[in-house]
């Protein structure tokens, strides 16, 4: 067992954990924070995405011991005084969720995306969410919700973003 101290959604917890304990299981099974679900075992689906010290991570691919001394924000910590985060509102208003299983991870990934790029294009949103899979929505309303939350209105996108190689912002960043 290893002693860890982790701040989750503003509360600091100290626990003895097995080194192999995944952060997502620490959140769910030890802290009872079941807002963060597990959707796969290969780091593909992104349903378990949380914020770890200011960056989005897949909490199924982080050990709880690796989060020792860190601050974690989950979907359950986003609303302030009962007011939803703009992304939570936008997902609701734009019908960006159906079954809702991917939604916590999708919102946490989108939050990180907007912090890095506050006014993305539709293609940039698609690329920024490449690590989060949704089986219900076809992504279109998710893209619209992220654009809406960014203040880009409910602007329908400018294209599919299917060609990753044509993604301009990445290229510019790299040059």
């Amino acid at each position: 067992m290893t002693r860890i101290s982790v701040k989750v959604d503003g509360t600091t917890y100290e626990d003895d954990v097995e080194p192999r304990l995944l952060l997502v299981h620490y959140l769910r099974d030890r802290l009872g924070l079941t807002g963060t679900p597990v959707g796969c075992d290969t780091t593909n689906c992104g349903a378990c995405t949380v914020d770890l010290d200011g960056e989005s991570v897949k909490s199924c691919t982080v050990l709880a011991v690796q989060a020792d001394g860190c601050a974690v924000t989950t979907i359950q910590g986003l609303a302030t005084d009962g007011d939803w985060h703009p992304l939570q509102k936008a997902f609701h208003e734009q019908h960006a969720l159906q079954c809702g299983f991917c939604t916590p991870g999708m919102i946490m990934a989108a939050r990180d995306l907007l912090e890095e790029n506050p006014h993305p294009t539709a293609d940039e949103v698609r690329l920024g969410l490449e690590g989060n899979l949704c089986r219900c929505t076809g992504y279109q309303n998710i893209v619209n919700a992220v654009l809406a939350a960014a203040g880009n209105g409910s602007a329908h996108g400018t294209g599919s973003g299917q060609e990753k190689g044509q993604e301009t912002s990445v290229k510019e960043a790299a040059v």
């Binding site: 539709a122 698609r126 989060n132 899979l133 089986r135 599919s160 973003g161």
Partner: peptide, 16 residues
């Protein structure tokens, strides 16, 4: 696994 079975992500689908 989900790494081998290709569920499309947002960049892989067009705007409808």
């Amino acid at each position: 696994t989900m790494a081998d079975y290709l569920v499309p992500g947002a960049p892989d689908l067009p705007e409808f």
